[in-house]
Design a protein around this nucleic acid. Sequence first.
DNA 1: TAAAATGGTTTAATCGATTAAACCGTTAAC
DNA 2: GTTAACGGTTTAATCGATTAAACCATTTTA
Lengths: 332, 332
Amino acid sequence: MKRTSLKDIAQRVGVSTALVSYVLNNKKEGRISKAIAERIRETARAMNYRTNQIAKSLKTNKTMTIGLVLADISNPFSSAIARVIEDAANESRYTVLFGSADENPERFRRLVDIFRDRQVDGLILLPPNGVGEDIRRLYEQRVPFVQLDRYYPASPGNVVALDNFTAGFDGASLLLSTGRSRIGLIAFESQLYHLRQRKLGYQQACLQAGIPPEPSLVAELGVHQLEKTVPAAIDKLLKNGADSLFFLSNTLSAIGLRHLNQLPIRVPDDLAVVSFDENELLDLFYAPLTYLQQPLEQMGRKAIEILLAAMENPQHITRINFPATLVRRRSA
Amino acid sequence: MKRTSLKDIAQRVGVSTALVSYVLNNKKEGRISKAIAERIRETARAMNYRTNQIAKSLKTNKTMTIGLVLADISNPFSSAIARVIEDAANESRYTVLFGSADENPERFRRLVDIFRDRQVDGLILLPPNGVGEDIRRLYEQRVPFVQLDRYYPASPGNVVALDNFTAGFDGASLLLSTGRSRIGLIAFESQLYHLRQRKLGYQQACLQAGIPPEPSLVAELGVHQLEKTVPAAIDKLLKNGADSLFFLSNTLSAIGLRHLNQLPIRVPDDLAVVSFDENELLDLFYAPLTYLQQPLEQMGRKAIEILLAAMENPQHITRINFPATLVRRRSA
DNA sequence: TAAAATGGTTTAATCGATTAAACCGTTAAC
DNA sequence: GTTAACGGTTTAATCGATTAAACCATTTTA
């Protein structure tokens, strides 16, 4: 059964498609006779008419569609963001296309291209390592986009992110304030700016406390095989005398806690722990985690707000950093 | 900067758009002179041409797009499915539109309508309570779709789901086999068939073990305010003498375990626990959970496979139930 | 009474592709 | 030497909307 088109309605009613379009879009209000308008509306309803967005998009050059490129939709952090973006976009009548780049620049580029081919009106990007140039190019091509969570400070364009330096500083400071002086850092070896900043914050806190940087207390891991490398890193840091651990992302802490669960070590007595990012399931750890909470809801909504503004007026650039909240519980 | 169109290339090269289209789509192979073909390809590259999918879709009546309606993308189960669907769809060059229906029939209908307006080629649906009629209508309208995970047995069309009855049966049987006879069931009051089946499986297992159904050991909760209702239900079941708990979904167990964590009760000694659905974070519970694992990867891929087949030939209906795997660990 | 305004509707171009059919030289076939 | 086949390319219709401009009756204004 073919969907009914404007033409079908026009034929049935005996008018031109133009008139049908005007009526159904409430254009030319008042200039159309009540009687015919009603007949058109009635017929449209009866024939179950729904506008073909593809055709409309082609003409209007607007798809009412937003592309969301994230790391991995099955990661709780990504999916939490996705949900906020979805809701905020829907409220403005936008639909979301999504794709997982898996920290892979190639996939990232592919997704951006695919979304652009589909003429998305804008992009929300959580870019992986190594796509700074691509971001710059998007900017130069005047593609409306917002970098969310992760970003390239040297690349121009809109940014919504955490104040990662302060967050890292605060996390380390908390540990220091509880008398810990040998903070083991579990981080990614990533060059991603937001992760670098977290680490810098941690280092700054240590320095201010008179503690010189100690490489043996820092583990920087590749994105792959974390199931193996995180436990190994923890073991190494413990051997090197760490009295506390600071996980710089939720992926790291999720795996790390599972390992800690199996060690004959008590948190927080033997080892204090602080992590990034909220996750209700981390509550299941026997010592509920102390963590740095990102205001995801706010950040996601802001990102959409900025994107919509950028779609209106590409000149308008916004770069915002939100503060993290230190949620203190039992682990530190 | 406007994107370059076929017309732009045609003008530059001095040929018709038809020829450009033929070349770039590798149609009419051999009937086009090598020299011109190369010039066209070269120019397309130089002008950074990318085909406008919207225009292409309008003409070909194919959008290479699939709509995914799930419960809530931020729920780990949903996002795990989403990831599988994304990958499987991408492999066949489809892009995924997604939306969260939040167990709300109204939202479900809205999403389906929006996706259809966007001319998706097919739908993967995880429908909420109360949309059986809508599913039937989709079928009658020959919209290609697959119900995944949840489904209406009375509604026609493709289905990929778990063998929920057997899964429920197996979960309860395990508890019975460890000597538990008072199994507390924590379920949704939902009419959703897949959840009903799980409960029926549990009941059947109990009956076969000579244990008559005891309503005081069954808690059926609404989808809202689970943070309050799950703990309350657990307390009630324990008071009624439950010696084990069977959570019928991951949402329920995630919240339930957090409560158990705070009770002066040891799992599995005082209370055995079995849950549905995998979730690596549930490992953080001090007694790693025994659970019924759904073959999500297989199910998702099968769903896409069936959907693609249905898009080719709507006559071909498939309904499959996959077996769950009982993963036994410490909690039971 | 002629010109202008108004109301109601249609015409036709357009968005950017795809594709069957037509076209027109050459070359091959009989 | 006429016809047929072929190779290479263009013409033009089409997908389903949107929308400026044109059109044509009335009615109002000067």
